[in-house]
């Protein structure tokens, strides 16, 4: 069976486990929602919220990523399933890709809901100025979501696999992940600012950040696939 096929099977398995356990819908999504509401309490003023909303979306996504990664690997390590998959001869790259794909799907759903939350709570809207109206802004937003999600999923899976099963992994994971995802936090925030027109930003300014996000996703996708095997083979 090819690596991609095995990866897809693992991704489907992870998503099925999540659908049945409902941890994501019952705990992670409400956590992300309450984070957005808490930001509004802390920042208070509407004009401040308008300015910082794109950053808050990605901050809430990053915090939720940590919970999702912990969850993704706790289901594997509790019953030694990760070791069992390796003993069964499954390629480590397939495990990495499968888990990253499942994580990416969950993150994408979360980000779309957070965008809606930003529209409702912070009054954000898509930029409609320019020759082609909101079309380019929507394309920029979708491309940003996809590329940032791929990068976050790759980093999360890589460090989740490293920390899995160790005492103190709950605190180690943020320590490793947060500095690594700083480029995504910066790039995705700037690109969304361009898409929604924060502080006069124009759509064309956002594409350079999408380029950075794409490079990040590719680098950590390849690096993660190569490094994941040595990290979990212990």
């Amino acid at each position: 069976m090819s690596t991609w096929k095995v990866a897809c099977l693992i991704a489907v398995k992870d998503l099925r486990v999540e659908r049945r356990s409902k941890i994501v819908t019952n705990q992670v999504l409400p956590f992300a929602g309450i984070t957005m509401v808490s930001f509004a309490f802390a920042l208070d003023k509407q004009n401040v919220l308008d300015t910082v909303a794109p950053g808050l979306i990605w901050l809430a996504t990053t915090f939720s990523l940590l919970i999702l990664v912990q969850r993704s690997f706790s289901i594997e390590t509790d019953d030694g399933a990760l070791d069992a998959m390796r003993v069964a001869g499954i390629d480590a790259r397939a495990i990495f890709l499968g888990k990253a794909m499942a994580l990416a799907v969950q993150l994408l759903v979360l980000e779309i809901l957070l965008l809606f939350a930003a529209v409702v709570f912070y009054g954000e809207s898509i930029q409609s100025s320019g020759a082609q109206g909101p079309v380019l802004a929507v394309v920029l937003l979708v491309t940003t979501l996809v590329s940032a999600t791929c990068g976050l999923a790759a980093v999360g899976t890589l460090y989740g696999g490293l920390a899995a099963g160790f005492k103190g992994s709950e605190t180690l994971l943020p320590l490793l992940t947060l500095p690594a995802v700083a480029p995504v936090l910066i790039g995705a925030t700037k690109a969304v600012e361009s898409a929604v027109g924060t502080a006069g930003a124009v759509v064309s300014e956002g594409w350079q950040w999408v380029g950075l996000l794409a490079v990040f996703a590719v680098a950590f996708g390849i690096g993660g696939a190569l490094a994941f095997g040595p990290l979990i083979d212990e």
Partner: peptide, 23 residues
């Protein structure tokens, strides 16, 4: 093995962090 892999990952991570922050 674990720390060597992480040491190598830092080689990917640091230029990306530096470039993004510089931008």
């Amino acid at each position: 093995k674990r720390s060597a892999v992480l040491g190598m990952i830092a080689v990917i991570e640091i230029p990306l962090v530096h470039f993004s922050v510089k931008m």
